[in-house]
């Protein structure tokens, strides 16, 4: 059924290496997204009209534009319009961070505005200053709400990185294609085995993270 091709030489290792590339790109993008997302999300709660308009337009762009289109714009467009020569990897990180920051900022804004004003008021009534209120009362609550959601963002990011093969990055799908191509004669059914394996690899990468996110969400529900 084409699985035998993966046992040949270092094919399986190459496939895992390809998955590694995808994971690497997604982890960098997630880190950037969380960092920028927290800043933007906090800014959004200030109710500053300029920030509001900017963030609404930004979020709407991300909401309706496929990441693939954004990838094309950055990878092909930036070179042409700005004369920048971005590598495919850098383009991918830019696009995924652009997307992830939007998602993250919306989560942060939601978490922040979801905290009841009574929490601030009762902290003030207890004589806490602003720093103490945030440090002891608000931030711990926000973190509990955000961690499961940010972990969830990681799985979505990993799934999205499969797109980077479309701009020529050699990740797991591309490696898979190369293996199939190279063994066309000896293993004509390699496509089944290789793609089934990749399917499973992605599942194995994402499922535990989804479970963790669900578990934490349940645990911290109240």
């Amino acid at each position: 059924m084409g699985f035998e091709v993966l046992l040949k030489g270092n094919n399986m290792l190459r496939l895992l290496g390809g998955l590694g590339v995808a994971l690497y790109i997604s982890l960098i993008s997630v880190a950037i997204s969380i960092f920028l997302g927290i800043i933007l999300g906090a800014l959004m709660t200030l109710k500053n009209p300029v920030i509001n308009v900017f963030s609404r337009v930004y979020l709407e762009i991300v909401r309706i534009m496929p990441q693939m289109v954004l990838l094309f714009i950055v990878y092909f467009g930036a070179t042409k319009v700005l004369g920048l020569n971005l590598s495919a990897e850098v383009s991918a990180v830019i696009v995924f961070s652009f997307w992830g920051t939007a998602e993250m900022s919306d989560l942060v804004r939601g978490a922040l505005s979801g905290i009841d004003t009574i929490q601030y008021e009762s902290s003030a009534a207890l004589g806490m200053n602003t720093a103490q209120t945030y440090f002891h009362v608000i931030i711990p609550q926000i973190i509990r709400r955000l961690i499961p959601l940010s972990i969830n963002l990681i799985t979505r990011m990993i799934k999205t990185t499969s797109l980077v093969m479309m701009i020529g990055i050699v990740e797991v799908l591309k490696v898979g294609q190369q293996i199939i191509e190279a063994n066309r004669k000896s293993s004509p059914n390699a496509a089944f085995g290789v793609f089934a394996t990749i399917f499973l690899l992605y599942f194995l990468a994402c499922y535990p993270i989804s479970l963790l996110s669900k578990y934490l969400e349940k645990k911290w529900e109240n």
Partner: peptide, 23 residues
């Protein structure tokens, strides 16, 4: 549900389009 929520569409399509014909 778990299988399809935890894998990318691109991989699902490759499997169905290039993989299944081998069967």
């Amino acid at each position: 549900v778990e299988l399809f929520r935890n894998t990318p569409l691109l991989v699902q399509l490759f499997f169905v389009y290039f993989g299944l014909p081998k069967l």
